[in-house]
Design a protein around this nucleic acid. Structure first.
Lengths: 155, 155
DNA sequence: TATTGTTATACTCTATAACTATA
DNA sequence: TATAGTTATAGAGTATAACAATA
């Protein structure tokens, strides 16, 4: 029983979302590919993590990214070589490295965000207003619910 | 003028979606990480492409994936070694290879889909019904609009 | 000669293990 | 000795170029 009760409705929604979210996920993932210099998904995630947590050290960055420390170190090597990130020796503790996004890095992050908005707009502006409003409200509610189910900082 | 007209509304929606879609994209991307054997995103995309287009050859698969031919060949090496994919010499043209998902490959794809639905359900069932309905309708409309803007088969 | 794949080489991302420097 | 990073090594994903096989 309850195949079509309130639980059934949620299950049906999960199946539909699993199918219909494809286009949104694909568009989202491809937006960064068009900005220059082109960063790998990992490089972009690292840059965004440092932007979100300025002064973060390498160990913490690795945890944030769910990656091993050497991987984070190499990523930062390349981001620094590209002039997007700075490694600063922490004055208080000379073992540590403080990471910071450079001006060029910030500009690149802005470009990615702008590209993403533009790619979304291209699709959204062809939708009926009501659908657009439903999408916005639905995504906001999903975002809030996801934050409650998977508290951030856990990763 | 038109800063808050119909164009402005669409722009605001794009900015909101760019922000609020994050949780959905993250959940979507992480679902495959929990199935066994764990496939890389590329391996999974290749397997899904072959599943969608049975009998596809390597050149076509590479085009579908937006990848170079040798990359597709190596991916298939590993998927075949894992028993998820079969390379079949095409009888009509002995240069070509016909690709097919094995039973184990199909089971793995089913597991990924099921995992995704379960991960979505975990969040969706904590949402108010109205929000869930809005999300479903909004995503369906976005999917339809995206198909019109970026016709499939184009990549 | 044109098409279909594979192999060779090189670079990035990732992991584990070994190492250096600092505390 | 414990902690923060780096370097060493190895496997996978990607690209271009060189090669082999078939048409």
């Amino acid at each position: 029983m309850d195949v079509l009760g309130s639980d059934g409705e949620a299950r049906a929604a999960a199946a539909t979302v699993a199918d219909a979210a494809r286009a949104l996920v694909r568009l989202w993932s491809r937006s960064p590919e068009t900005v220059s210099p082109r960063l790998s998904p990992s490089q972009l995630r690292a840059l965004q993590a440092v932007d979100k947590l300025p002064g973060i050290n390498l160990t913490r960055l690795a945890v944030e990214m769910g990656a091993a420390l050497p991987a984070a170190s190499r990523l930062c090597d390349r981001l620094a070589a590209a002039g997007l990130l700075e490694r600063i020796r922490a004055p208080a503790n000379r073992r540590e490295v403080m990471l910071a996004v450079t001006g060029a890095g910030l500009r690149l992050l802005d470009e990615v965000a702008e590209r993403r908005r533009a790619d979304l707009l291209e699709v959204l502006e062809t939708m009926p207003v009501e659908s657009r409003v439903e999408l916005v409200r639905g995504l906001r509610a999903f975002d809030a619910a996801a934050s409650a189910v998977h508290p951030p900082g856990r990763t």
